[in-house]
């Protein structure tokens, strides 16, 4: 019989199955942990942690993601090459994020230094920035206003305020 290769390595006993079957307790523990961590993120979002809240939320999400990848997606027991593919992707995402955010963060200082986009900055400072949404499309704005008029419009916020965190806020502003 011909030699059997798997990922470039000769396989000694190609007809034996090496698939790992996790016991039920593992799956139960993982789903339990996932729910606890979700509750934690939810609770933390109501505590005012300020700028730290993003870091905390991302850290918890990272733990949850690792649990799913390791146990539900079997990467812990799987061929190590699949782990390599996965982590390789994450590294490229990191490069993508890192370079783009670094560029955007340092660009303003560079623009000031080299006096590029001065007119845009002046316009923004004079409150002449881009108009929002339908303001740019007069016909659509007229249509929306007509629709609001016909359906009692402005009270939308009040009607749907209950299920919809933002409702009260909008009312308060008026």
């Amino acid at each position: 019989m011909a030699k059997v290769f798997l990922n470039g390595q000769p396989v000694e006993h190609p007809h034996e199955s090496h698939e790992h079957v996790s016991p039920m307790t593992t799956y139960n523990a993982v789903i339990g942990a996932l729910f606890v961590l979700t509750a934690l993120t939810y609770a933390v979002s109501f505590a005012n942690l300020g700028p730290a809240s993003l870091a905390v939320a991302m850290f918890v999400a990272l733990i949850k993601a690792s649990l799913v990848v390791a146990y539900f997606m079997h990467l812990k027991y799987d061929d190590r090459y699949h782990l390599f593919v996965f982590l390789g992707t994450i590294i490229f995402v990191g490069i993508f994020f890192g370079f783009t955010l670094f560029d955007l963060q340092s660009r303003n200082a560079l623009n000031d230094e080299q006096e590029t986009f001065v007119r845009l900055r002046d316009m923004e400072n004079a409150g002449q920035g881009l108009k929002v949404g339908v303001e740019n499309v007069p016909e659509r704005k007229a249509k929306v206003l007509e629709h609001i008029e016909a359906h009692g419009g402005g009270e939308h916020g009040g009607e749907h305020g209950g299920d919809h965190g933002g409702g009260h806020k909008a009312e308060a502003k008026h």
């Binding site: 929002v132 949404g133 339908v134 303001e135 740019n136 499309v137 659509r140 704005k141 929306v144 206003l145 609001i148 419009g153 402005g154 939308h156 916020g157 909008a170 009312e171 008026h174």
Partner: peptide, 9 residues
């Protein structure tokens, strides 16, 4: 351009 929440208050 579909954004019109400000018209809804």
């Amino acid at each position: 351009k579909f954004y019109s929440a400000h018209l809804h208050g």
